[in-house]
Design a protein around this nucleic acid. Structure first.
Length: 917
RNA sequence: GCGGAUAUGGUGUAAUUGGUAGCCACGUCAGACUUAGGAUCUGAUGCCGAGAGGCGUGGGGGUUCGAGUCCCUUUAUCCGCACCA
């Protein structure tokens, strides 16, 4: 009987569904294991072969863990709110809810065909009110909390209000947007509106006037991680900086905890490094410089206080709040002109012109506190308003940007560290002897830095300070297809909706674009109000819904809480999370923040949501080309194309097999190729190829459905794993898929005779067969634990090669279980054919019995002076000394050793590795 | 510019973690069985060389009895951040 994968796979997919084989419940009697995939955004294009890569890996691991006796939670859902559905809606007028629903059905259909073991009863969709109720709920909680730096956790805002009423800001150390100082008396005098304004400075979800990334084409603001190279990640539209009143999340409050938390996580070093960079902690000094003829003290941040003797000018950002004040009458026109110009330049232009030096003098001077010299204050856009204090002390001798600036404006350059060639370029010295630096002169840079920190504090010039690059997350989008904010307004003041009014449902609308006044689409909804007060018009960004979905899966139908205490204490956090690296600075930051916040409030019991994280590599496309002889409709095969002038044309990879073009399919592909002629080599047309991004326009998109159709889900699953290490990016290339398919067929044939009868025997296995089996068990277990799925599949193949035509049940039954995580359909079918009534996934995963691996004798390779000379078989009980004696007396060895005893015999782990003469 | 990763046959890759480099596949070649083969089975296949032998893990250097693996240096590719003070 042939291996009929189609019949087997359909049969088992239906039976699994019917029998709810993959249903999971909390079960305190068993250890839990939580395996999670990053849930997909259901786009209109459907899945391509790259998507399931991570899903297959997590599915293998889930099934393996289940077979090992764990209660495995392995859920799936959809990240269903977001821009693309809405952009599509604007173009076509179709409601995003409709297209999203369609896309989800298509995804589900595709996922089902691959045979995943998701518990679909736990499915979540971020766009459903029952789900986003908890997104809104978390937002309200953030709104109602502030971050106390002293206790390092979120605390209720009413504690802050009490503190303000008692002592004003005196003695507080809390996270805020801009530092404020006021007294209890002042607080008492303020009205509700003013107090609310002040509180926004402290709330973890707050509304503030900040510089934001504004994308005119998308008509919305974007978070930093949604912008790349000055363009929006979705759509690639230009983004500009604009000051707007927006909701933000105070993720910066958690910067240090998010940084520290990384150490305890089993994430790849590169991913941790990306997060560390994104948080961008830098230790430096805050230093106040006196401004000449003024009471003002200009505050700067520097990581190199040791170079302060080399400061010859100061620079403030064009957006710095003192620009006007510091500008003298003579310079007013020039400064205003410069600022106007800066404003006009887009973010993208600013990036493109990174090295262009520009700036203008304010006319004011600061006093270098160590040299006492008056130094000019400039305005330049190379200083960013958003980082540090928006002002710097410039040390042209030791900073390349300051150097360029000083050169351009003819400012004095004073070296303070020995070395480098100051005439030509700056010397960014991290060590070396200090010169021209008063009391620091003669010290090494490494000593000078701490000495200066001390001196700055001693003189009261400033203090040690830690700065983070991380920015608060801008949380509102001027869009329709997202979670509405549970917030209403009285005048300009925002008020939270009472919790029992959640979920605040997204109202249906018909026109999805912004209004003529440029307001978000929700402005069109006539009764978008709460008790007569206008509700917030913006909606939440895409990352809102994905920031706590892993918690919701634990208890997805709970209408009383995001997750019950019981479910949360059982499932705790995600043991294994698999997904793409592209979420390093977005989703993975936000969900850590979100989870830590809920942890502070006691709603969840683990502060880190994802214990172990594996990033699957990207699957690239492998494009195929045909070569048309210029000016003709004649195509020449790859090997012969050098003799002709040809034009390279992308050809649909689905009509190419092993780089060989299906000529009839090609003629049928497009009308223009109907009469195509070919110059063949060896009767074949061989296509060229290249690795490119998988995309429709390059005709290299491979749909998993086609593979499942032709080879079956088990082959697809195994082949995707066989392609190479999981974490590595690799091109999709079906050239090797036959090998995996052949392996499954071969496995199948071991069970069945020619007549389709079960051909298993009860014969006792030989020691060699047992050895092969147990070696494989050991290897497979190790490989799965290490996510080395490609080598585990090799191990299966080796095992079958070694076994040959073995039909013994005692060998094949454990092998079937062993292979079940990889190829669940065929394994389940064979398992059931062997007479088992329970699913194979309730069986126990085979355990290696080391006794079958033992050898009675083994071969030592013997090397003489680096060359392999002969092999000798020794009994296990011989010691290295016995072997040495043996080598010396053996005739063959004697010949090589020319009668001399070796100087040294190198034995590693009881094995002779080399003989030195 | 800073940070991270990768580099092995014609191709995807493997290597007990410092111990016979190239496992397992793809591809190619040869053979068997076949009316046929995009089925199945067997064998060969790193490169040079008729052979003995030599050379081989991006390049150069080092440590070691021994290096794909460790150290230094250099090149190429990919990724992240980027006037971040």
């Amino acid at each position: 009987m042939e291996y009929n994968f189609k019949q087997i796979e359909t049969k088992w997919q239906e039976l699994w569904k019917e029998r709810k084989t993959y249903r999971v419940e909390t079960d305190p009697s068993r250890p839990k294991f939580y395996v999670l995939d990053m849930f997909p955004y259901p786009s209109g294009a459907g899945l391509h072969v790259g998507h399931p890569l991570g899903y297959i890996a997590s599915d293998i691991y889930s099934r393996y863990k289940r077979l090992c006796g764990y209660n495995v939670l392995h859920p799936m859902g959809y990240d269903a709110f977001g821009l693309p559905a809405e952009q599509y809606a604007i173009q076509t007028g179709q409601h995003p809810a409709v297209t999203t629903e369609q896309n989800i059905s298509r995804y589900r259909e595709q996922l089902d065909k691959i045979g995943f073991c998701y518990d679909w009863d736990r499915e979540v969709r971020t766009c459903e009110p029952e789900y986003y109720k908890w997104t809104q709920w978390a937002f309200l909680k953030m709104y109602d909390h502030f971050y106390c730096n002293r206790s390092q956790k979120a605390c209720p805002i009413k504690e802050l209000v009490e503190a303000f009423a008692a002592n004003g800001t005196e003695g507080l150390d809390v996270a805020c947007t801009t530092p404020m100082t006021f007294t209890a008396e002042e607080w008492a005098e303020w009205n509700e509106e003013k107090r609310e304004q002040v509180l926004q400075n402290y709330r973890l979800a707050y509304r503030a006037d900040t510089m934001v990334n504004w994308c005119p084409q998308l008509g919305t603001v974007l978070a930093n991680d949604e912008v790349k190279d000055g363009l929006s990640v979705r759509g690639g539209f230009p983004v500009e900086q604009k000051r707007m009143k927006q909701w933000s999340l105070r993720v910066t409050a958690y910067a240090q905890r998010m940084l520290d938390g990384l150490d305890s996580l089993e994430w790849s070093d590169s991913l941790k490094e990306i997060q560390r960079n994104w948080i961008g902690r830098s230790v430096g000094a805050q230093v106040f410089f006196d401004v000449k003829d003024s009471e003002r003290k200009l505050e700067i941040f520097t990581t190199r206080p040791d170079t302060i003797f080399g400061v010859t000018f100061m620079v403030i950002a064009p957006e710095h709040e003192w620009v006007e004040e510091l500008t003298t009458a003579d310079n007013k026109a020039a400064v205003e002109e410069y600022i106007a110009q800066t404003k006009k330049r887009s973010e993208r232009e600013r990036i493109a012109e990174t090295r262009r030096v520009s700036g203008v003098q304010t006319g004011s001077y600061a006093i270098n506190p160590f040299t006492g010299k008056a130094i000019p204050i400039y305005v330049s856009d190379y200083v960013l308003a958003g980082y540090g204090t928006g002002a710097i002390m410039a040390v042209p001798a030791h900073d390349s940007r300051d150097y360029a600036f000083a050169r351009h404006f003819g400012i004095e350059i004073i070296p303070v560290v020995e070395g480098g060639n100051i005439e030509v370029e700056s010397y960014d010295a991290k060590s070396g002897k200090m010169i021209n630096s008063g009391f620091l002169t003669g010290k090494d840079v490494t000593e000078a830095i701490p000495a200066m920190f001390e001196e700055v504090e001693k003189r009261g010039l400033g203090k040690k300070l830690i700065n983070y690059r991380l920015r608060d997350a801008i949380f509102s989008r001027q869009r329709y297809w997202g979670e509405p904010f549970p917030v209403y307004y009285k005048g300009e003041t925002a008020y939270p909706l009472p919790e029992d009014k959640l979920p605040l449902e997204l109202p249906p609308i018909e026109n999805f674009g912004p209004t003529e006044q440029g307001e978000p689409p929700l402005a069109r909804v006539a009764d978008w109000a709460y008790e007569g007060n206008q509700l917030e018009l913006s909606t939440m960004p895409g990352f809102a819904g994905s920031s706590a979905y892993f918690l919701r899966y634990m208890d997805p139908r709970n209408s009383e809480a995001l997750v019950s205490k019981e479910a949360n204490e059982y499932w705790r956090n995600v043991d294994l999370y698999i997904g793409g690296i592209e979420h390093a600075t977005g989703h993975l930051m936000y969900s850590r923040f979100w989870n830590m916040f809920l942890y502070d409030l006691g709603y969840v019991c683990e502060s880190e949501p994802f214990k172990k994280l594996v990033n699957q590599g990207m699957i690239q496309g492998r494009s195929n080309f045909v070569y048309r002889i210029v000016g003709t409709n004649k195509f020449v095969s790859l090997g012969l194309k050098k003799d002709y002038e040809t034009q390279e044309i992308h050809v649909d990879v689905n009509i190419v097999k092993n780089d060989q073009l299906d000529l009839d399919a090609f003629r049928a592909w497009r009308p223009e190729f109907k009469d195509a002629e070919f110059i063949l080599e060896d009767g074949k047309y061989i296509c060229g190829w290249a690795i490119e991004k998988m995309s429709k326009s390059m005709f290299n998109v491979v749909n998993p459905d086609n593979i499942v159709e032709n080879y079956g889900a088990d082959t697809l699953r195994m082949y995707e794993m066989f392609l190479g290490p999981l974490e590595q990016s690799k091109p999709w290339d079906t050239n090797g898929i036959d090998g995996v398919h052949k392996f499954l067929r071969k496995f199948w044939r071991l069970f069945y005779g020619k007549e389709g009868e079960l051909a298993l025997t009860t014969e006792e296995p030989t020691p060699a067969e047992l050895k092969s089996l147990h070696k494989t068990i050991k290897k497979i277990r190790e490989d799965i634990e290490n996510f080395s799925f490609n080598t585990s599949i090799s191990a299966f193949m080796i095992c079958l090669n070694e076994l040959g035509a073995c039909h013994k049940r005692a060998i094949l039954e454990p092998l079937t279980v062993l292979i079940a995580p990889f190829a669940p359909h065929i394994a389940e079918e064979l398992w059931s054919a062997m007479g088992h009534e329970q699913t194979i996934f309730d069986a126990a995963y085979p355990v290696c019995d080391e006794k079958h691996l033992e050898e009675s004798a083994f071969e030592y390779p013997v090397m003489v002076n680096g060359k392999l000379r002969f092999k000798q078989t020794y009994a296990l009980d011989m010691t290295p000394a016995d072997i040495q004696a043996d080598i010396v007396t053996t005739e063959g060895a004697q010949k090589w050793l020319e009668g001399k005893a070796p100087k040294k015999i190198i034995v590693v782990k009881g094995k002779i590795i080399n003989i030195v003469m």
